[in-house]
Write a protein that binds this DNA or RNA. Structure first.
Lengths: 167, 167
DNA sequence: TATTGTTATACTCTATAACTATA
DNA sequence: TATAGTTATAGAGTATAACAATA
C-alpha cells in the first residue's frame, strides 16, 4: 500500500464526491501499478518501453529521447543500460556529432516494442472498457484539455527544489 | 522539471490523442505541484491539511487518521510533529487507551484548516473552471467510477516491494 | 565556451525493524 | 500475544556536480 495518494479524501466508498486531487492521484497511481505489473511480465518497465518506442520512430540521441520522455539525462543512462543489457538496444556513435550516441533498437528490441505496446494498449483498453461507452471519449477529451491547458506546466515546487550538493 | 511522468507520449502538443497513462500522470503531477505551491503559501502541506481535517471531524488517533489518509504510521509521526511545531495540533492521551494519542486541533489549527480548505477548493475550482462547463461533471463521474471500480486497488508491484532491512 | 554522455554521490521520501508502553 | 506510537535507518528513486570528449 504505497501511499502515493497522501491526502484529501481517503475513503472513496463513503465519499459522495471525492475531490479532483484524490481522483487523479488515485487513478494515476493504480493505473501505474497495473502498467508496471503488466510490463514486468515481459521484462519491461514503462521507461524502457518509452525509450524503445521513441528510438524506433527515428534516429534519436539519448538527450533527444530524454527530452521527449521528460527524463533527466542521468536517468536516461540507467534506462539505456538496462535496454543494452537486455539486448534490446545499442548505443551507436552519431555520424554527425561524435559526442552523441544514437539509440539503435535491435531486432529483438523491435519485437519487444511490439509486445510491450500491445501490453500498454491492453491495460488502457481494460481501464477505459470498464467505463460506460459514452464516458470514454469525454474523459479523454477533458484530460487532454487539462493537460494542454491549465495543467500543462508544473509550477515551481516551494521547498522541493533539490539543494546543491555539499562539497 | 521533476519527471513524475516518466513514459509514453511526452510531447502533448503534437500528439493527436495522448494515452490514458500520460494524461493521468501528467495532470495529477501538475495539479499536485499547484496544490503544494498554493498550500505552501499558508505554510501547509497536503498531508498536514489532510490530518488537520480528519482530526477536526471527530476524535481520532494517529493510527486512525493514518489509515484514512493511506499513510504509514511512521509518516504520520513526522506529519504530526510538523503540526505540533506549527502550533496547529497537539497529541493528547486517549481516555480509553493509554497507548493511543488523540490528535487535538488547536484554535489556530482550526483556523488554519479553514484557510487551507479554501486553498484546496480554489485550486480545484481553477482547474475544473478551465474546462467547458458540460465536461466538468462527466470528468468527475468518470474518474469516480474508475477509482471505485477498475482502478480501486493497486496491484502488487513486481520488484517494488521493499526488502527487509539488513541486520 | 557550451554540450553529450558518464560516473559518483547527495538528497528526499517512505517503509522496515526494533523498541517501549500498554492492551 | 498483539497493538499504538516512537526512533533509527535502509532502500529506491532521482537529480546535482564534476568530468572527459567533442562541438
Amino acid at each position: 500500500m504505497t501511499s502515493l495518494a497522501p491526502a484529501f479524501s481517503g475513503d472513496i466508498a463513503d465519499c459522495p464526491s471525492p475531490d479532483l486531487s484524490f481522483l487523479l492521484d488515485h487513478t494515476s497511481h493504480v493505473l501505474r501499478t497495473r502498467m508496471a505489473a503488466a510490463l514486468a511480465e515481459v521484462g519491461m518497465t514503462a521507461r524502457m518501453h518509452c525509450v524503445l518506442v521513441k528510438a524506433l520512430e527515428e534516429e534519436r540521441t539519448q538527450i533527444q529521447i530524454a527530452e521527449i520522455g521528460d527524463m533527466d539525462k542521468t536517468t536516461m543512462v540507467v534506462t539505456v543500460d538496462a535496454l543494452e543489457q537486455a539486448g534490446l538496444a545499442e548505443r551507436r556513435p552519431s555520424a554527425t556529432d561524435r559526442r552523441a550516441r544514437i539509440i539503435a533498437v535491435t531486432d529483438a528490441g523491435a519485437e519487444m516494442a511490439k509486445r510491450s505496446q500491445a501490453v500498454v494498449d491492453r491495460v488502457h483498453a481494460e481501464a477505459l472498457g470498464s467505463l460506460p461507452e459514452e464516458l470514454r471519449p469525454v474523459l479523454l477529451e477533458a484530460l487532454t484539455l487539462l493537460a494542454r491547458g491549465h495543467l500543462a506546466e508544473p509550477v515551481e515546487s516551494p521547498a522541493g527544489a533539490r539543494r546543491a550538493r555539499q562539497v
